[in-house]
C-alpha cells in the first residue's frame, strides 16, 4: 500500500471520496440558501426541512402511486418548489418590511412544524428507499469499493450546481436576478415584476433542496430529522463560503466535504467539528466569508 509521511494514501483517498459525496449535498443545499439569501435577504431556516420533505414526497410517490426514482427526480423539485412559492407568497412576503430576523424566526418555526408533522405521520424510525435498478452495483477502485449510486450523486449534483450557476451568470433572467439582488426598487421601476421574481427565486432555491432530498433518499433512510441533521453543517458552509456568493457556495460545499472526509482519516475525533472550527476561524479573519464581498 502506497504511503506518504506515514499516512496510507488508499484509506485517505477513500475517506476523501466519501467526503465529496457529503460535499455534493452541502453544495446543493448551500447553493439554494445563497440564491435565496441574495435576493430575499432571508436566512431560510426551513431549507433543511424542505430537503427532508423532498425525500418524503419521493417516498410517498413511490409507495402510494408507484412513481419511481427517475420521474421523482424531476417531479419532486417541481412539487416542493411550488409549495415553497406558496409559503413565500402567503407567509414570508408579509415580513419583508420588518427586520430580517423575523424572516429567520418564521422559517425556523416552519421547519419545526414540518418536521413535527412528518414525525407525527411517519414516525421517527426512518424508511428505506431502494436504489434505482440502473444505479445498483459498485466499482472496485483499488483503494475502495465505490457504489455506483454515490458516483451518480456527485456527478448529478455537480451538473445541477454548475447549471444553476450558468443560468445566474450567463442568461438574461440571471442578469435580472443579480440586478434585483443589488437594487430591487430600480429593477422594478424598469418594469420587472420583482415580487414575482422573488417568489420564483424562493421556489427555485427550495427546488434545489428537494432535488437533494430525492438524491439522499436511497442513501440515508428517509426520516423526519434528516434535514435538521445536515442543515446545521450547511449553515456553517454558507458562513465559510460567504453569504449570497453563488460560486462560493458551490466550491465551499464540495471543498468542505473533502476536508471533512480527510479529517475523518487523519483525526477521526475531529471530523464532526472541523467545519465548525473552520467557521470560527473564517468569521474571525474574514467575516464576509471566503468568497463574500465585504459590506
Amino acid at each position: 500500500m502506497l504511503s506518504i509521511l506515514g499516512y496510507n494514501v488508499g484509506p485517505m483517498l477513500a475517506q476523501g471520496v466519501l467526503g465529496l459525496i457529503n460535499g455534493a449535498f452541502y453544495a446543493l443545499l448551500s447553493l439554494g440558501l445563497a440564491v435565496i439569501f441574495g435576493l430575499l435577504n432571508i436566512i431560510n431556516f426551513a431549507h433543511g426541512a424542505l430537503y427532508m420533505i423532498g425525500a418524503f414526497v419521493a417516498w410517498v410517490l413511490l409507495n402510494y402511486l408507484g412513481i419511481g426514482y427517475w420521474p421523482s427526480l424531476i417531479l419532486v423539485p417541481i412539487l416542493v418548489g411550488c409549495f415553497g412559492m406558496l409559503i413565500e407568497r402567503v407567509l414570508i412576503s408579509k415580513l419583508y418590511k420588518l427586520d430580517h430576523l423575523y424572516g429567520l424566526l418564521l422559517t425556523f418555526g416552519l421547519a419545526l412544524i414540518m418536521e413535527g408533522l412528518m414525525r407525527n405521520y411517519f414516525g421517527s424510525s426512518g424508511m428505506p428507499f431502494a436504489v434505482p435498478e440502473s444505479l445498483r452495483g459498485a466499482t472496485r477502485l483499488g483503494f475502495m469499493i465505490m457504489p455506483t449510486y454515490r458516483v451518480w450523486v456527485v456527478a448529478a449534483s455537480f451538473v445541477v450546481c454548475i447549471g444553476t450557476w450558468l443560468v445566474i451568470e450567463k442568461t438574461s433572467i440571471g442578469a435580472t436576478l443579480r440586478a434585483a439582488t443589488e437594487n430591487p426598487a430600480l429593477v422594478q421601476a424598469f418594469g420587472v415584476n420583482v415580487p414575482r421574481l422573488v417568489t420564483m427565486t424562493y421556489g427555485g432555491g427550495v427546488a434545489l433542496a428537494a432535488f437533494a432530498g430525492v438524491m439522499a433518499a436511497p442513501m440515508y433512510s428517509v426520516n423526519p430529522s434528516m434535514g435538521s441533521n445536515v442543515i446545521i453543517v450547511v449553515f456553517a458552509v454558507v458562513v465559510i463560503g460567504g453569504m449570497g456568493s453563488i460560486l462560493g457556495s458551490i466550491l465551499t460545499g464540495f471543498g468542505l466535504g473533502l476536508v471533512e472526509g480527510f479529517t475523518k482519516y487523519l483525526y477521526p475525533q475531529g471530523s464532526g467539528v472541523v467545519i465548525f472550527v473552520l467557521m470560527v476561524i473564517v468569521l474571525l479573519l474574514r467575516p464576509a466569508g471566503l468568497f463574500g464581498k465585504a459590506a
Partner: peptide, 8 residues
C-alpha cells in the same frame, strides 16, 4: 400604481 406597471 406599482412602479413596474408605471414603467410598462
Amino acid at each position: 400604481m406599482r412602479s413596474d406597471l408605471i414603467a410598462r
